[in-house]
Write a protein that binds this DNA or RNA. Structure first.
Lengths: 341, 341
DNA sequence: CTGAAAGCGCTTACAG
DNA sequence: CTGAAAGCGCTTACAG
């Protein structure tokens, strides 16, 4: 039988309450008592039962997810994943609220974060935009003992409890390797599409992509980045102009959203077989494009994994329990038509 | 406040014990009482607290993992992942035992399974070999109400609770797409290496691989499969013979283990840049080979994910709780040097 | 600074 | 067929 607090109390010759105080590092215990309890714990190999503790504490986890609103399919997929755990998590004494804020708007995000009551929420996960006001709002939550994780997009200037997302430089490098290898001996230009060069993810992906192309595929040349604001309409307009101007574009890399516009241009363009196309994030649109051969590869991050990982990390901080190493690494996934699951 | 069994009992005008009987579908309750309780449950929106129930039941999960012994790095990685959750799972009232059996040996596997006491184990996960004795041993466990999942390698003739692993036909197709695209305009032969054509995974991967090569890359031709018994020494011997005999081998696909032998041959061979090499499973050896450019791509399955998924599925069966859709799909992962994490 | 007792939301004998 | 009471492994007031 596994030892319980009762056993520890008996072994140490103290009451249950004292064991509890030591276990939870509550103040007002004599050094000598602490020592006795700790000796008993290690002698018996006591491991505390977290769920029994949570039952006694009537612990309920309340989490806030703050994510961008708008048409971005990846973000809507992220929202769907949050909804899925939300339904499921009633079993786990967990309550989840979703707050949606305008995308690319640091002030709006900061205002929403400032509106979160630290007494109400036991943890916050946020798709962050970099801005001083955001950093300050996150710092306020941390000061009030609310653990914070950033999701998908990090804020390096703020030391949060964890960043749950991919390494975007490596993602760009991965895209470039696929592009370069798929192009074989061909030479020519690569069109680069991003949402905005003010967004960290996209800047990092571009950096990684250009690094690899320049060093390993010198017969290829990257055109200046087209900024499509993650908006399908704009992407469509700018990209078709670009392809008209440059007849020797052999590859297209979309490091941002707005894939609907990209797909529109390339499917009209017909000769998709002759160009290699790499984009980010598996959505219903990019899946269809992979199937149709309009897109050759998708670099993906698993939004469901990110949501569940964020929750595990926040709970571990709250319960002061260790995480399982390896489970919380978000991978840079590659999808071809063949391994869509 | 969330309603509890107390609330349900009060609302239904019955005792706690009766509520419990209905909740757990225990026999010996009048239809009318069942109806009253069920009405109260749905009226209050009662959701049962599984961890409180497990505490009261002194429920301890005891799981057996049955895996192959031997030098196979993937299997040793799988074992390490089981060990990792084993350490961690003391917190979760979960005990895990690992049984190792000789690889490719259905009788030894069946004997081990037959030795598992159904009274002791609440669930079993097994890396299965196809054999009648194995199927019967698994059926015995199921008859004794022990849920069973197959790990990595399925036994289609046995209807188990779940198969936790990848679709190996799709994995083969994925390997072929990478091979074909990376080869660009080149034509020539592809050397195929497998462990054994008696093992289902390898047969399926081969099928998927050849399908895609034949239909989409007609300038490429697959050589007959080399069977290396997943043994580095043998793979090295047979593959180097094969490369000596065929001067026009432009690609190598290893659908089995024994990658150390493969890497040995190809690194000596020098001209690795001229051949495209695709293999399975990220291990310390294949990582190094990716880094060194000896291997171009690795098709991978996440052993840690598989272990954790198997545990979640078994627990859900035991607790009769729903699974979170999406979390249990094992993906066919693709690794290039750039997205190693 | 310490301890006895009640309680968290369930389940389990046992009595009727 | 049904219910009162004790108990699972913790924590929380409250009294001293």
């Amino acid at each position: 039988m596994r030892p319980t607090v009762q056993d520890v109390a008996r072994q140490a010759g103290v009451s249950l309450a004292s064991v509890d105080r030591v276990l939870n590092q509550r103040p007002g215990v004599r050094e000598k008592t602490i020592a006795k309890v700790e000796a008993a714990i290690s002698k018996l190999g006591y491991i505390r039962d977290v769920s029994a503790a949570n039952l006694a504490k009537r612990q309920i986890y309340r989490f806030a997810f703050v994510i961008p609103e708008g048409a971005n399919s990846f973000m809507r997929g992220l929202e769907a994943e949050i909804e899925a755990v939300k339904q499921h998590s009633a079993n786990d004494r967990t309550e989840i609220s979703i707050y949606k804020v305008p995308p690319f708007d640091g002030r709006a995000l900061a205002a929403t974060l400032d509106g979160l009551d630290p007494a109400r929420y036991s943890g916050v996960a946020v798709v962050a935009t970099e801005a001083v006001a955001v950093r300050d709002a996150l710092a306020r939550l941390r000061r009030n003992n609310v653990p914070v994780v950033t999701l998908v997009s990090d804020v390096p200037s703020f030391q949060c409890d964890a960043y749950v997302g991919i390494d975007n430089v490596a993602a760009g490098r991965t895209a470039a390797r696929l592009m370069g290898n798929f192009l074989g001996e061909k030479s020519g230009k690569i069109a680069l599409v991003a949402g905005s060069m003010l967004v960290r993810d996209h800047v990092e992906r571009r950096m990684g992509f250009e690094q690899v192309i320049r060093s390993d595929y010198t017969r290829l040349e990257c055109l200046p980045v087209i900024e499509g604001k993650d908006d399908g309409q704009l992407v469509q307009k700018y990209l078709s102009e670009c392809l008209r101007m440059h007849s020797d574009v052999v590859g297209v890399y979309n490091m941002g959203a707005g894939n609907r516009g990209l797909i529109e241009v390339l499917s009209k363009n017909g000769a998709s077989k002759e160009r290699v196309v790499v984009a980010h994030e598996l959505t219903e649109h990019t899946r269809r494009a992979l199937n149709a051969g309009i897109v050759d590869a998708i670099i993906h991050q698993d939004a469901g994994h990110e949501v569940r990982s964020a929750l595990r990390i926040l709970k571990a901080r709250i319960d002061k329990t260790p995480l399982l190493a390896g489970q919380e690494t978000i991978r840079i996934e590659i999808y071809l038509n063949e391994n869509l699951s």
